[in-house]
Write a protein that binds this DNA or RNA. Structure first.
Lengths: 180, 180
DNA sequence: CCTTGTTGTAATTGACTGATAACAAGCCTG
DNA sequence: CAGGCTTGTTATCAGTCAATTACAACAAGG
């Protein structure tokens, strides 16, 4: 089957990367098959591998991509109002782009792999540092902010937060406390 | 090879379950091979399957096991002093038994699977409820407590917290804020 | 002692999966 | 328009892995 349209390797790589983010968000590192990513991107599986070398490198690219986007969201939010509480309101944006937090979570889970662990630690550290730099928050405040983000992340993974949540009374009770 | 000692199915099942907790903590649901669990438990791989039916059911058993232990730790802590701040000091115990938080984290990650998701939601909800019941904390306080736990969990997965942490200045800065 | 249920293994299988190789078709450039 | 570079596919492999089957050893009770 000849491809419908020919793109440059960079353009196609971007499309595959977007597909990879969606797929990894849904199934994690080990659980996602390169075949599925290829299907989502509309290309053949071997081409996915050729574009990124290995599945691991593709996952690393996905991690970097979502972390870039997370930092971008925080920067935009801080540009409007550089207070930590204002930044907090922008967790909504992160929850809306559900893949961001989910890929990050799967990054944490896959940190047992040294290569992935190095990448995740570096990116998580730079997010922490960015938050402190943008808002001037103390370590305590920044930690509290990050803590709330992590709870949102795991609740998002359990489908208790974000679009179309599974209704659970206790989860709704927790969700309400985020609205401050 | 004939086994060294014969145990009842229940005893052997417990040993396999302990091995499974260790293995799943290290590599997650998809990343852990039943073969590795068998090796850790000192039995053959088919026997692991026969004892638990499927790898999924073994993972569910591991989730239930660590959640039972987490609730037990909280109950013991509350028996000494039923204040939330006192309970917080017992996160150290959770960090010491590193597998507890790690298996839970991998449970969150694997929540995309409906069966696992159901189990994880139920157990996480009952932990939240237990915390509220034991301490009489408000939803806000309980959420804050859980939030801190989730940050500890992911930092533990990144090997930034717990025994033998990878030294990172920013991570140490965060870790210090937990000591209150 | 024998026979029946239980604990356990060895052998195997069938499906899957990441990666490689070989090839094809399109596009630019001289 | 010829030649080479880029984009993309098909075919295939070598390894892995959960699960099944069949069998073996052992213990306990009659």
């Amino acid at each position: 089957m000849t491809p419908k349209v020919r793109l440059t390797a960079k353009e196609r790589g971007d499309e595959v990367l977007r597909a990879a983010v969606r797929a990894f968000a849904a199934s994690g590192y080990e659980g996602t098959k390169t075949d599925e990513i290829a299907r989502l991107a509309g290309v053949s599986q071997p081409y996915v591998i050729r574009l990124f070398g290995t599945k691991q490198q593709l996952f690393l690219a996905a991690i970097r991509s979502v972390c870039d986007r997370i930092e971008e969201i925080f920067r935009e939010a801080a540009a409007e109002s550089p207070e930590l509480s204002a930044l907090g309101r922008n967790y909504e944006r992160l929850l809306a782009e559900r893949e961001l937090l989910l890929v990050l979570l799967h990054g944490f889970s896959a940190s047992g792999d040294p290569v992935i662990g190095d990448c995740v630690r570096e990116r998580f550290g730079s997010i922490y540092t960015l938050i402190r730099d943008l808002t001037g928050a103390t370590p305590e405040q920044a930690r509290e902010f990050l803590s709330a983000g992590m709870l949102m992340t795991v609740m998002s993974a359990m489908q208790l937060l974000g679009p179309d949540p599974i209704p659970m009374p206790w989860a709704a009770e927790i969700a309400k406390t985020f609205d401050n």
